[in-house]
């Protein structure tokens, strides 16, 4: 628990929240403190990159959230870092210099949510073709389903 308290002392702007199942801590980090906080967490022992993803909370402000999961092998602990990203200017600092593993994940979040990671070495679309329009995992992007018609089958006529 000493890791968390040292982080909490250094960053008074960060709100910590305890999750019981599974036991781990969640840190709500302001976007301005994000890279410094991640760097501090890395020095404090959370040196394993686990996951990064975007979430679109359509009606909430800030609308987007980037969720980063870090892992500490030595303490067997997890830290989830949540950063809000406003819809008007969806920009966040990239952490690829701290965790190169974030590279693909940030590209994915850019591709699917349109969150721009500043300082990313190669921020291009990753899972969709380059000339794709829009960011499909945003809530205002349609599922894109094609209506299924069964009437044309010979049996049904």
């Amino acid at each position: 628990m000493s890791i968390y308290s040292s982080l909490a002392d250094a960053f008074p702007s960060v709100e910590f929240e305890k999750v019981l199942d599974p036991p781990q801590d969640v840190a709500h980090v302001p976007a301005a403190d994000y890279p410094e906080f991640v760097a501090a967490a890395k020095t404090a022992g959370f040196d394993v990159f686990a996951d990064l993803c975007g979430v679109d909370y359509l009606r909430r402000d800030p609308r987007f959230e980037v969720v980063l999961n870090l892992l500490s092998y030595s303490e067997s602990a997890r830290l989830r870092i949540r950063v809000g990203v406003p819809a008007a200017d969806p920009k966040l600092a990239s952490i690829t210099d701290l965790f190169p593993g974030a590279n693909f994940y940030e590209r994915e979040a850019f591709d699917l949510f349109g969150v721009v990671f500043e300082g990313h070495p190669d921020l291009t679309r990753i899972v969709l073709p380059d000339d794709w329009e829009g960011h499909p995992l945003r809530k205002d992007y349609a599922v894109g389903s094609v209506p299924v018609r069964f009437k044309e089958s010979p049996k049904a006529q």
Binding site: R59, R63, G134, K139, D140, Y141, A142, V143, G144
Partner: peptide, 17 residues
Amino acid sequence: MSDTPNVVTGDLEAPTT
């Protein structure tokens, strides 16, 4: 695809895609 019209309507202004 992207122009299918069943877009979620919200009171928030939809940002540019």
